[in-house]
């Protein structure tokens, strides 16, 4: 009897260890997310934005987006006409610049602007930054839902953000984010981002469509990557103020 109890106990310990070994830690999951999202050396994207108001009325914007690594991103508006030429540069250490062609000036974006809407979309300037989540958030493993990991991300001390927390759903098979719930300072859910049409191009995963939904305004912005190019070999010179106004 005693021998049998020891055997069962050993078996249970083995099962627990196995389960533990199969479920990576929240930190590991988030590092994998960062690695997958920022896997390409660089990205050259042509983006279509569809803004839909609560009455279902749609507006369209087009922009080009270049990204190098995980912390340099350049966005330029191609349409509509009254926004054409507006360009946005995101650099490491929360440095962001905006070029307004009408004024022929590049303006440094102060932190208060980061949480405002980016050109009328439901994405904020902060959302448009190139980001490594593990550098900015403390993750906590909440649960596993079918084949998805669910993490809670709390901003690290000193991070300037309007989000009190993010709840993130991540595919188990490829560590790609499929959904993020954004909570405001009052800990109230106010924006949901979902990602669809996740596919592998070359050796990298990418969501062809992302949708940001503002729950209060009942307004959504769908971001569609119409053209995708990876590893074009951009130099750092692409991501400078010099290039922002070109």
């Amino acid at each position: 009897m005693k021998k049998k109890t020891i055997t069962i106990t050993m078996l249970l310990i083995w099962i627990c260890v196995s389960i533990y070994a199969q479920t990576p830690t929240a930190e590991d999951i988030l590092k994998n997310v960062d690695a997958v999202v920022n896997a390409p050396k660089d990205q050259d994207l042509k983006v279509k934005l569809i803004l839909t108001d609560k009455k279902g009325k749609e507006k369209t914007r087009e922009m080009s987006m270049l990204q190098k690594g995980s912390d340099k991103r350049m966005v330029k508006f191609l349409s509509p006409a009254d926004q054409k030429g507006i360009a946005f540069l995101s650099l490491p250490d929360d440095v962001m610049y905006l070029y307004l062609p009408a004024f022929k000036k590049i303006r440094r974006i102060a932190s208060h602007v980061k949480n405002t809407k980016f050109a009328g979309t439901d994405f904020t300037y902060e959302d448009m930054e190139a980001v490594r989540y593990s550098d900015k958030y403390e993750p906590e493993f909440l649960r596993k839902e079918d084949s998805l990991f669910v993490l809670q991300l709390i901003p690290k001390e000193g991070l300037k953000t309007d989000y009190s927390k993010l709840i993130m759903w991540i595919r188990e098979d490829n560590f790609y984010i499929v959904k993020i719930e954004h909570y405001n300072k009052g800990d109230k859910l106010f924006k949901i981002m979902t990602r669809d049409k996740i596919e592998k191009i070359d050796e990298y995963w990418i969501a062809r469509e992302s949708k940001m939904q503002d729950l209060k305004a009942k307004h959504t912005t769908k971001m569609i990557f119409e053209e995708v190019k990876f590893d074009s070999g951009f130099s750092d010179d692409k991501f400078t103020k010099r290039n922002l106004k070109k």
Partner: peptide
């Protein structure tokens, strides 16, 4: 010069 003082653009 241009920059931020806290959250305020200056």
């Amino acid at each position: 010069f241009a920059g931020s003082l806290g959250d305020v653009g200056v």
